[in-house]
Design a protein around this nucleic acid. Sequence first.
DNA 1: CGGCTTCTTGATCAAGGTCAACCTTTGTGG
DNA 2: CCACAAAGGTTGACCTTGATCAAGAAGCCG
Lengths: 244, 244
Amino acid sequence: MNFVSCKDCPLRGLNHFGNFTADKLELVSTLKTDQIDLPAGARIIEPGKRAKRLFTLLSGWALRYRMNDAGARKVLEVLLPGSLIGLQNTLQHHASSGAVAVTPVTLCVFDGNPLDELFEELQEQYVPFLSTMMEDQRRADVRAMQNAKHTASVRLAYFLLDSYDRLAELGQAQGGSAYFPLQRRDFADILGLSDTHVSRSTAELSERGLATMRANSLTIHARQRMAEFAGYLSHRRTGKRFLL
Amino acid sequence: MNFVSCKDCPLRGLNHFGNFTADKLELVSTLKTDQIDLPAGARIIEPGKRAKRLFTLLSGWALRYRMNDAGARKVLEVLLPGSLIGLQNTLQHHASSGAVAVTPVTLCVFDGNPLDELFEELQEQYVPFLSTMMEDQRRADVRAMQNAKHTASVRLAYFLLDSYDRLAELGQAQGGSAYFPLQRRDFADILGLSDTHVSRSTAELSERGLATMRANSLTIHARQRMAEFAGYLSHRRTGKRFLL
DNA sequence: CGGCTTCTTGATCAAGGTCAACCTTTGTGG
DNA sequence: CCACAAAGGTTGACCTTGATCAAGAAGCCG
């Protein structure tokens, strides 16, 4: 993708993200030092390594994950356009999560200490910034709660609805359908299931007439019933999302 | 507990927490508007409610939790002295996690917009602040990963080791033993197990000679073997922890 | 000493893991 | 355009982990 100035950022135009004033935007533009394209499967951040650079996902899908001793991968977070990548690895000496591209991705690169400048110059932005972190934590909280009590197909249904709504906010879902590039193995690592059982669960959702998934796409057939099945409440988000 | 000025805060003296300069400390002192004692079992923050106040746990144990529709509780985080409480509920419109005291607790109260002032006046503190949030996220990440793959007793062992190390950093554990006020039911809600199975798992750790728990206390008998059993690595923490 | 709550132990059962065979897609080269 | 290989997905059989239900055993008050 051609280099995009933050002033012309296609994401920033979306209602979903907060706006900066022209001069703040100018500052953010100067903080963006590079833009890189990576193919599907590329490792964006190596787990266990310290990083100096902070990324924003401009387009494409990625996963934040962690490996355990046995070599099994657990996906901790699904990263969609607008997601900040690498905060763990810039702030912690021994961050053990990494990030990998699921589709071809385009990344905005913020070198040096963008957060220093951010908090110096864009001081009043810390509330949206923290709110966005809290929103992500909320998502993790829900996941934790569900893992404790619900069955595989309920968890899958919840994950699909939540993901669909995130995509819709990015303008990447309409009429119940969305591009959805995850494979069985990814679902397994996200939900903490075996890929075999993910298969069974998707079959169940399909049999119930709730949703079908095939060939990189997701279709939700009966939103209302599926939300009941999953115990999903689409709550209005807390304000706009922060975008560096 | 008598009102403690931040300048005389017993926690701040610990090596575990970062230090402020005298004038910053003075500022924080003025932000602390109150100090309250609550008995064991008291609800510190009501789930689902918006809150204006931010708390710091000065002494005692508390749990951040969330209820599901079926009325089951899931503990999301164990809060020990120094923990910030209520960030979710001040920043999000619809925060659904609450906090409850496990032991009698003493809370420092920060009214109004302490974070505003913090970031205005203590601007350079944002790195420790975010680092601390990332450290807590790391703990959650590990928990998520374990839930996916490990057995109940391994998860319990990991949780005990992690908790023990947190207590040790607070000077509340020596020689393998620590005050540990959680009940079977709390463990169940933390680990996402039934209390019955927590019982079996503690029995297993005891039979293996790794650790025993009785009467509000935890004793780790064979740290090394237990760490191997749990796959636990006590990594040096990333810098000091932020304490408002 | 009852009358609580918490903890333990046992028996049964269901959700999901594992292993293995087979089916579908997709891609590649002749 | 077909043949075949490789990767991903589905289905089935069996087994393990941990949930559920229920009955006792400790503690812990009054």
